[in-house]
Write a protein that binds this DNA or RNA. Sequence first.
DNA 1: AAAAATTAATCAATCGTTTGATTAATTCAA
DNA 2: TTGAATTAATCAAACGATTGATTAATTTTT
Lengths: 206, 206
Amino acid sequence: MDKKERILEVAEELFAEHGFEGTSTRMLAAKAGINVAMLSYYFGSKEKLFETMVDQRVNKTREKLQLIAETPISPAEKLNNVIDLYVEKILTNNCIHRIIHREISLHQRSEMTNVITDILLLNAQEIIRIIHEGQEKKIFREVDVEMTVGTIFGTISQLINSAALCSKLMNLDPTESVSSVKIQTRLQNHLKDLLHAHLTPKNASA
Amino acid sequence: MDKKERILEVAEELFAEHGFEGTSTRMLAAKAGINVAMLSYYFGSKEKLFETMVDQRVNKTREKLQLIAETPISPAEKLNNVIDLYVEKILTNNCIHRIIHREISLHQRSEMTNVITDILLLNAQEIIRIIHEGQEKKIFREVDVEMTVGTIFGTISQLINSAALCSKLMNLDPTESVSSVKIQTRLQNHLKDLLHAHLTPKNASA
DNA sequence: AAAAATTAATCAATCGTTTGATTAATTCAA
DNA sequence: TTGAATTAATCAAACGATTGATTAATTTTT
């Protein structure tokens, strides 16, 4: 097993669970089963380890998103595909997304936040482009496009960031995670249904 | 000026900006213009200060929410009122809500998290009750009610937790905050429009 | 044997908290 | 109405513990 990989793995878990400041280098070393000095040896510092971990993960989703946007299908289908992809990616990698979300919520202008913000911005603009395309083709009605993107992102984030709340709200038995396939498809269906109702012109047939 | 109040005031700011672990007692003391010892003197510990601060704020909104739920108006109107109230409360008190959101996202089962979760749960159930009422009266269609609540909470949270992202996305000039009245009404209108489209039966007239 | 990986020991800095002393305000007794 | 006793508020200084990081020595790999 690659120790460097192993460190990145436990870093994702611990940072998600205790936050950046709440995770000490000794906690990381203990959980990874290595000596503290190895962190500096491999990554230079705790902060660089954090940045490396985020960097490695943060770019993956966007390529697939762009692929969808370029596929020659209807905007409605594109949007459905985007939702399926986004929900699946975020729920199955909920650790890193909780970390990102928390980092951003601090409103601290670090190099890291800027990098993350820019990537999320690209994702958002891709979705906006899809909606605009649908509006030009008159199959989507006029809505607040930016806020609509906020609804997509926000609904998914809500589920992973307030997992305990959502669990209680949906009467999940404690063994079942909000990342389960069942919840995943339920969220996908909800978002598709919601956006369909939201974007379909009022006088159009259902 | 009451020093105890002043401490709670700056605590809200600093915890929102730097997180709990990222805020030292000396930072708090410096910003509040008091001696570090006063924190222990007044609150016992940093943790208790945190809990006091959250406790003081977290209960306020719910009373008003319940008032709306009991007012004898149509479920559609109730929902609109709930949205107006919730958006206004969260945007104008965005510090405490960022803190709460972050605390919950840690998934750490502390007494604090339980208290917060329970209160949010009550709020959520109040909204669910309103939607159910509308469904019984056949003026709302069948939807995933729990997920719909997640959409309401999530959309609002998205705006305050990813303020930098939202600012760029909506081309706000840097002086304008996401908590401005302009954005507030825009968010309220979006949510009302979204939920109206989502909940209105398909074969009903617009 | 040279290089890379790993270790225990240690560093200065900072953490949250406590201490003992001092001041200012209030209460009580004469 | 003084003067003594008590309380609350505030302070600088220091506490032990922990932080992220580094050192120098040792082991492992090539």
